[in-house]
Amino acid sequence: MWQDIRSMNATANALFGVFILALLMSGIWWVVQRPMFTLKVIRVEGVEQAALRHVNAFTIRDTALPKMRGNFFTTNLDNVRTAFESVPWVRKASVQREWPNKLIVTLEEHQALGTWGEDGRLMSVKGDVFTANLAEAEEDAELIAFAGPEGSEKEVLARYLDFKQWFANISLAPEVVQYSSRYAWSLKLNNGMRVELGRLQDDQTLKNRVDRLLTVYPQLVASLQDSIESVDMRYPNGLALKSSHNAFGINPKLKVKRK
Rank of each mutant, 00 (worst) to 15 (best):
G70P: 00
H110Y: 12
L143A: 03
L134S: 04
N101P: 04
Y160W: 07
A132G: 04
A145Y: 11
N56W: 10
I104T: 09
A141I: 14
V125W: 05
D119I: 10
L134I: 08
F130V: 03
L134G: 01
N79F: 08
S86F: 11
T63Q: 13
R91K: 15
L161V: 13
F130T: 04
H110P: 04
D119W: 07
E138Y: 03
N76K: 09
N71D: 04
K102G: 08
T115V: 08
A135N: 12
I104P: 03
E98R: 11
R91A: 15
H54A: 10
I60H: 07
P66F: 04
R97W: 01
L134Q: 02
R121I: 06
L52F: 05
R69W: 07
S94M: 06
A112I: 01
E139M: 08
H54F: 11
E153V: 07
Q49W: 11
K92N: 14
M123V: 09
S86T: 15
K102N: 11
S86V: 12
T63E: 12
K102R: 15
K67H: 05
E153D: 05
T131F: 07
N133S: 10
Y160G: 02
G70R: 02
N71A: 06
E136C: 05
L65N: 01
S86E: 15
A141V: 14
N76G: 09
K102F: 07
E136D: 12
A147M: 14
T63D: 12
E108G: 05
A93L: 05
L143M: 11
E155I: 14
A145S: 15
F130S: 04
K67E: 11
Q49V: 09
K67W: 02
A51P: 14
R159K: 15
H110S: 08
A64D: 00
Q111R: 12
L77A: 06
A50I: 10
M123W: 00
T131I: 12
I144R: 01
F84P: 00
T106W: 06
E108S: 08
T74W: 13
G70H: 03
E136A: 10
E109F: 02
K92A: 13
Q111H: 12
L157Q: 03
R159E: 15
A83M: 04
F72Q: 07
Y160V: 06
A83S: 05
K67L: 13
A83G: 03
V125F: 11
N133G: 06
W89G: 03
A112F: 04
H54D: 10
L143W: 08
K102T: 06
E48G: 02
D78Y: 01
F72C: 07
G117P: 04
D128W: 01
A135G: 04
A83T: 05
F163N: 00
L65Q: 02
F146I: 09
D140Q: 09
D140L: 10
A50K: 14
A93P: 02
F58S: 15
T82Q: 14
Y160E: 02
L65W: 00
F73G: 09
D62A: 13
D62V: 11
T59P: 09
E108V: 11
V156C: 11
F163W: 01
I144M: 05
L134E: 05
